[in-house]
Amino acid sequence: MHESPTSPAETPLPLTFSGSGAEYFRIWIVNLLLTVATLGIYSAWAKTRRLRYFYRNTQLAGAAFDFRGDPKAILRGRVLAVALLAAYHYAFGFSLKAGVVTVALLLAGLPFMMRSALRFRLANTVYRGLPFGFAGGIKEAYLVYLLPVAIFVLPGALVALMPGRPIAGSVFLLYLCWPLMHGAMKAYQHKHLMAGDQHAAFALGTADLAKPYVRAFLFGLGLLVLIGAAFALAVILPRGHGWKNAAAFLPAIIGLVIGYVFLLLSGPYIMVHMNNLAWSATSFPGVRITCAMRVWPYLRLQTVNVLLTLLTFGLYRPFAVVRTWKYRVAHVSIEAPDGFEQAVLAARRRPVAAAGDGVADFLGVDLSW
């Protein structure tokens, strides 16, 4: 008796990208020139054009995604964000009271704005006419984002309030909690995703998402051992003609090389594994997502991108962005055991009143550029 072949419903559906670097270069150069000519005002329209190009060239099961955000809403959000950051930069120079008020506004406003950014982006991302959404609550947003925001705004404020005191520098100890903070933000983003009226399920916790940081830390610890061995080697080995002077620099050179290798590897390693974990743990009713990027190919890709961007004085940047997007899309696939069409048809458009997207559309806060 022969085994039945895999049915189409069980075959993973890949995401594909049909754009090219040359096409996007034309969009990018116009966006750049108009943004400079308008002193940054056009950046909101530039972002909308960029997202539409990438989304409309990304296909799943023969249908493309789309972005329908209003550039004017994005501009309003950016003006608000830039005003707050400018106030933070200059407020303490104006007066101590103004600085404290500005820091309080940032602590109170940025978590709300970051949640609004997620709501705006997803509410305006569409597939087959069905908008995505974000159902994360405000209270949880403050629990997740307040500490990262505090790390950003408190050092400067404490230096201005208590110059020369050790407590001003102690706030940097909060960075030790960054793996858990990053994991909490990822979990918050993924477990509240929506496709129409379908809520996502998310199978991981904050500690699970922080594991790539732990592995990177252990890897860095191993490199520190190698650096220590290099120092010991420089002391123990005999010093002949000119060796004494060379040995003084050898540990530093080896340490710099090893430290550079660690910095080069840790960023892509953490990004790849956190994305793989987060997306592979995200599912919708009848739909499972798999993300399977690999560290070394991604590192090679980014190394080439950086080198060519530097060699071309930045002109290779749009090609690098396309190559990165294409790589990430190519390593995401969708499984629908009961059929993808049935899963899509089961999702319905959310009522506007229930979705509450009016505030998100008004603010249009998009903190990325």
Score class of each variant (00 low, 15 high):
Ala320Arg: 15
Gly156Ser: 09
Ala104Arg: 11
Ala355Arg: 14
Asp366Arg: 14
Asn31Val: 02
Leu250Asp: 01
Tyr53Glu: 04
Asp70Leu: 12
Lys186Ile: 10
Ser280His: 14
Gly183Gln: 05
Gly314Met: 13
Gly109Tyr: 04
Ser368Glu: 15
Ile27Lys: 12
Gly286Gln: 11
Gly240Pro: 04
Val103Cys: 07
Leu84Gly: 09
Phe112His: 12
Val214Arg: 03
Arg350Tyr: 01
Gly77Cys: 10
Arg56Lys: 10
Val257Arg: 12
Cys177Arg: 07
Phe313Leu: 11
Ser18Cys: 02
Phe120Ala: 01
Ala83Val: 05
Leu105Arg: 12
Ile27His: 08
Leu218Gln: 00
Gly255Tyr: 10
Leu301Glu: 14
Pro251Met: 06
Pro251Lys: 13
Pro166Met: 04
Thr38Tyr: 14
Ala150Thr: 15
Thr58Gln: 01
Gly99Thr: 00
Pro131Trp: 07
Pro8Asp: 08
Phe362Ala: 05
Trp369Asp: 13
Ala86Cys: 09
Phe319Trp: 15
Arg317Val: 01
Gly314Glu: 13
Val352Gly: 09
Ile29Ala: 08
Pro148Asp: 14
Ser283Leu: 03
Pro285Glu: 09
Phe313Glu: 08
Gly228Pro: 03
Pro5Trp: 12
Ala141Met: 04
Val171Gly: 06
Ala200Lys: 05
Arg215Ala: 07
Phe362Met: 08
Met114Leu: 12
Pro179Gly: 01
Lys139Val: 01
Asp366Ala: 10
Tyr260Cys: 09
Pro351Met: 06
Thr11Gln: 09
Val103Gln: 04
Gly196Ser: 10
Arg76Gln: 11
Gly242Leu: 04
Gly164Thr: 04
Lys72Asp: 10
Ala87Pro: 06
Ala360Lys: 13
Gly93Gln: 06
Phe172Asn: 12
Ala252Glu: 07
Val257Gly: 11
Met181Gln: 12
Val287Pro: 03
Leu147Ser: 13
Pro318Phe: 15
Gly183Phe: 01
Trp28Ala: 12
Pro351Cys: 02
Ala247Phe: 11
Leu180Ala: 13
Ala73Lys: 04
Pro163Met: 04
Ser7Val: 02
Arg68Leu: 05
Arg300Lys: 14
Ala207Asn: 01
Ala157Glu: 07
Leu161Asp: 03
Thr290Leu: 07
Leu107Lys: 13
Pro297Ile: 02
Leu307Arg: 04
Glu140Gly: 06
Arg121Ile: 04
Asp338Thr: 14
Ala83Tyr: 11
Ser7Asp: 07
Gly228Gln: 06
His89Thr: 09
Leu146Val: 08
Leu34Thr: 02
Phe65Leu: 04
Phe17Pro: 00
Met185Leu: 02
Arg323Val: 02
Ser266Ile: 03
Ser170Ile: 13
Phe65Asp: 00
Ala104Ser: 10
Ala81Met: 15
Gly169Leu: 07
Asp208Trp: 00
Met271Asp: 05
Ala354Lys: 11
Leu84Asn: 11
Leu107Gly: 10
Met185Pro: 01
Pro131Met: 03
Glu341Phe: 06
Val344Ala: 15
Gly21Met: 04
